[in-house]
Amino acid sequence: MTTRHTFWAGLIGLTLLSFLSLFIGVIDVSPRDLISDQETFELLVISRFPRTAATLICGSTLAIAGAIMQMLVRNRFVEPMTAGTGQGAALGVLIVTLTMPSASIFTKMTVASLVALASSLGFLAIIRKMPPTQPLLVPLVGLIYGGLIGAAVTFVAYQADLLQYIGVWMNGEFSGVLQGRYELLWIAAGVGALTYLAADQFAIVGLGRATSINLGLNYSQVVLIGLIAFSVVSALTVTTVGMIPFVGLVVPNIVSRLAGDNLRRTLPLVALMGAGLTLICDILGRILRYPFEIPVGTVFGVVGAALFLWLLYRRPQHG
């Protein structure tokens, strides 16, 4: 099956899943009620559709963000949510909450994006000095770096009596998504779609600085564009639904193993699989302990790890 066939098959599957997602929740809804009952229709518009859309956007854009970061850093074991970018975004929201409590959500988002970008730049500056012969140092340093920023956020929040607030940003889940409270994510969707225009550039940057310059690419500019893209996506996710780890790590790795690293070809697949897996995990989270919910990050951790192990231990097929 070619990449293109896989993509269309996946898209059909994703559409069915999204439809299913609209009808799963504490209040019982069936497609038939939709036409006859006004309240049901409102429930769908106010809660179920926003939740499904938010899940799809977060899943796809976080997976794209992970794929781009892995190309820029030239390491398959990093992702924005564990290497300081997500924590930086949380720090940004915290700074706004402390200094400008009445700031608009747009201000919050801007500051979160800027601090996320600064954190990503910091990470890049740190790992530049690392020996390329030790690829596992990079994700480890990322975990420590992200952990440090996360700890700073928790400490400041504790001092300011904001622990409950930051719980919302640090543990992402979709149950709080309602109409009017998630729309900023459409900006993330736009950024994610725009990255496709630079798919070739990111793939070339993944071949290293020398190859990029040899091919006439403005290396620093492409790296900066990539950094901004995944920082903005992370910041928007953190401000609206909170941190969702693993998506950016697991999905690009699965796609790379199955279909390779040519982002022009594989980035749509990354987006699709990110959206699909996240939605499946959110649906599972809704029905496993019905009527209670398990946060999507927790479910994804289990499902993603299982999938990844399966991929590692089966015979390599690509190539």
Partner: peptide, 26 residues
């Protein structure tokens, strides 16, 4: 350039195709 330690998962034809990037910009 030096061959990277961790080779990318690109088909040979895809890699060679990047050689045309200065002309076709993708």
């Amino acid at each position: 350039p030096q061959v990277p330690d961790q080779p990318p998962r690109l088909a040979v034809r895809e890699l060679v195709g990047f050689g045309r990037y200065p002309y076709n910009r993708g």
